[in-house]
Design a protein around this nucleic acid. Structure first.
Length: 271
DNA sequence: GGGCTCCTGGAT
DNA sequence: ATCCAGGAGCCC
């Protein structure tokens, strides 16, 4: 579900509410997420104060007093919200951080999300930096061009690879390719320098606009305060199969590329 | 590299 | 009943 713009919105919503709050207790349900919560983590995190909340790619990083970190991934259907403690507990609630004045709840229908605890900053940072490339707002032009040109993979697969650029998912891959007028099946190695620049700029543009729009809600996504996103109204390709391309009115087509549903304009986005 | 898997629920 | 869904890790 959530890609970088959605995760950024969650973080921005939660920050003013939960920073400075102390964890008074932790509750969790019977189901494990992608990784199980180890019981030994509970005593280490209770009574700690949340000193910061940040994001790297699609990962949320809670900084606790004392230097430890809780790292959260929303998977496909994760919701991470701060609510008044009297709010009824919803179904599929897997985790609940009881804070001084709020409850910080992790709800996830499909349980593809994860919550992990790291004893120190270095350990947490290493886990993320090992697998993540640069953020999409200021992509280093040369390394990006080299990575794309050296790749025999299809553009769709390249954009979904978190090690190339962190934070792009299925929606924003399709939206970036549409804006760059590039076909999702084109091989990275087939692109000219000019086309790679176009792609890089399209990614930056789409991600900025999507953050501005508080992300996209298709079904499950909500921000940290429970609000839906608005960027779904700006889609030019994603989920618009059969609808007219906003540029040329040709019907948008759908194709499975890199195992993911891909939407594109067959006229604007030639192979 | 690409394919399969984890899981639940909504649409057809 | 079958297909599909904002993700990513593990397996050749």
């Amino acid at each position: 579900m959530p890609e970088l713009p959605e995760v950024e919105t969650v973080v921005r919503d939660l920050r003013p509410v939960i920073v400075g709050q102390t964890i008074t207790a932790i509750e969790h349900g019977p189901h494990s997420l992608r990784r199980p919560w180890l019981e030994t983590w509970t005593p280490s995190t209770v009574h700690q104060t949340i000193t910061a909340i940040n994001r790297r790619g699609k990962w949320i990083i809670l900084e606790l007093g004392g230097g430890s970190r809780v790292i959260v991934h929303l998977g496909m259907t994760g919701q991470f919200t701060a609510v008044d403690p009297t709010t009824p507990r919803p179904d599929h609630l897997h985790f609940n951080f009881l804070l001084t004045d709020y409850e910080l709840r992790f709800r996830d229908i499909r349980r593809f999300g994860s919550i992990e605890w790291f004893t120190d900053e270095t350990q947490a940072r290493a886990m993320l930096e090992d697998k993540l490339g640069p953020e999409p707002f200021d992509i280093p032009a040369l390394p990006f061009a080299k990575a794309v040109q050296a790749s025999g993979r299809k553009l769709k697969a390249i954009l979904l690879d978190q090690a190339i650029i962190a934070g792009i998912g299925n929606i924003y891959a399709d939206e970036s390719l549409h804006r760059a007028r590039l076909h999702p099946e084109t091989l990275g190695s087939a692109l000219s320098t000019k086309e790679i620049s176009r792609l890089r700029e399209a990614i930056e543009e789409v991600m900025l606009a999507a953050v501005e729009g508080r992300g996209s809600t298709i079904r499950d996504y909500v921000g940290g305060s429970g609000l839906r996103g608005e960027f779904q109204d700006e889609f030019r390709a994603y989920g618009r199969t059969g609808e007219p391309c906003p540029t040329c009115t040709t019907p948008i087509e759908r194709l499975v590329v890199a195992g993911r549903s891909s939407h594109f304009c067959p006229k604007c986005q030639k192979r």
